[in-house]
Simulated assay, not measured.
Amino acid sequence: MEIAENAALVVIDVQKGFEEEFWGKRNNPAAEEKIAALIDLWQETGRPVAFVRHDSLEGSSSPLRKGYVGNDFKEFVEERRGKGAGPELLVTKSVNSAFYGEPSLDGWLAGLGVEQIVIVGIQTNMCNETTARMGGNLGYEVVFPLDAMHTFDLEGPFGWSRTAEELSQATAVSLHGGQFAKVVTVRDVVEGASASAGVR
């Protein structure tokens, strides 16, 4: 696949609060390693990176609330912020979509002439999926490397429950089949980004 020379990497909610037992069982234990590899590649090639942080408004009930250690980015993300050769943005939000944060992600991307975004982070079927859908609606070409994200088991209505892996697969089918995004692997993205940047 082709990754544009100015494609933006959108790193969503990779925060310490997601390490707490509050969330339950997760999938894809390799997600953090894959996210780090993509941040490194984007920074090395001078592509734009947006780091998105969820500032929960749920007060003391949320591990992502402001002022609590869980609100902080995980160390591997924090240590990479500000280290790239390209443009960087910090977006804070209190809802699912990174496009409803401050400052405006859409405005920043438009100002850079970005037409393609690559979404990674937490959670696959929540903020990642919502941002992907909205990105598609706004006219961006959305790339969704499924192995650079994870989610958690979840209970729903009618006594239904689904595992994290089942939810990830459902998100992938909905986004890809519905043409909201191209669901791919990190390897696909790395090969496409390296080729367009002339990296061997």
Rank of each mutant, 00 (worst) to 15 (best):
M1N: 09
E2C: 09
E2G: 14
E2A: 03
A4D: 08
A4I: 00
E5H: 03
I12D: 03
D13A: 08
D13C: 10
V14W: 03
Q15Y: 06
Q15V: 00
Q15N: 10
K16L: 01
G17R: 04
F18G: 00
E20K: 07
E20G: 03
R26P: 07
N28S: 12
P29F: 13
A30M: 11
A31E: 02
E32Y: 07
E33Y: 03
K34G: 02
K34D: 05
A36Q: 08
A37L: 10
A37F: 04
A37N: 10
L38F: 02
Q43E: 15
Q43P: 03
Q43R: 12
G46C: 12
R47T: 07
P48R: 11
V52G: 02
R53S: 15
D55H: 13
L57D: 09
G59F: 09
S60K: 15
P63A: 00
L64R: 05
L64D: 01
K66Q: 12
G67M: 07
G67V: 04
V69A: 14
V69H: 14
G70D: 07
G70K: 13
N71W: 13
F73P: 00
E75V: 00
F76T: 07
E78S: 14
E78W: 03
E79Q: 12
R81L: 11
G82E: 02
K83A: 14
G86T: 15
E88C: 06
L89R: 10
V91D: 02
V91G: 10
S94H: 09
N96S: 11
S97H: 08
A98G: 13
F99T: 03
F99G: 03
G101D: 05
P103A: 04
P103K: 08
S104G: 05
G107P: 09
W108Y: 13
W108N: 05
W108L: 05
W108Q: 05
L109W: 04
A110Y: 09
G111S: 10
G113N: 03
G113V: 10
V114I: 01
I119R: 06
I119C: 11
I122Q: 12
N125V: 01
M126F: 09
C127V: 15
N128E: 13
N128L: 12
N128S: 12
T131K: 11
A132S: 13
A132Y: 01
R133G: 02
G135T: 13
N137P: 00
V143T: 10
P145H: 04
L146M: 13
A148S: 09
A148Q: 01
H150R: 13
H150V: 02
D153V: 09
D153L: 15
E155N: 05
E155R: 06
G156V: 00
G156F: 13
G159K: 07
T163P: 15
A164R: 08
L167Q: 02
Q169E: 15
Q169N: 14
A170H: 11
V173C: 10
V173T: 00
S174P: 01
L175R: 12
H176G: 14
H176K: 12
G177S: 12
G178H: 12
Q179R: 14
F180V: 15
F180L: 03
A181I: 10
A181Y: 06
K182Y: 08
V183W: 03
R187M: 11
D188L: 05
V189M: 11
E191W: 08
E191T: 00
S194Y: 10
S194T: 11
A195E: 07
A195S: 11
S196E: 14
S196H: 07
G198Q: 13
R200E: 03
R200P: 15
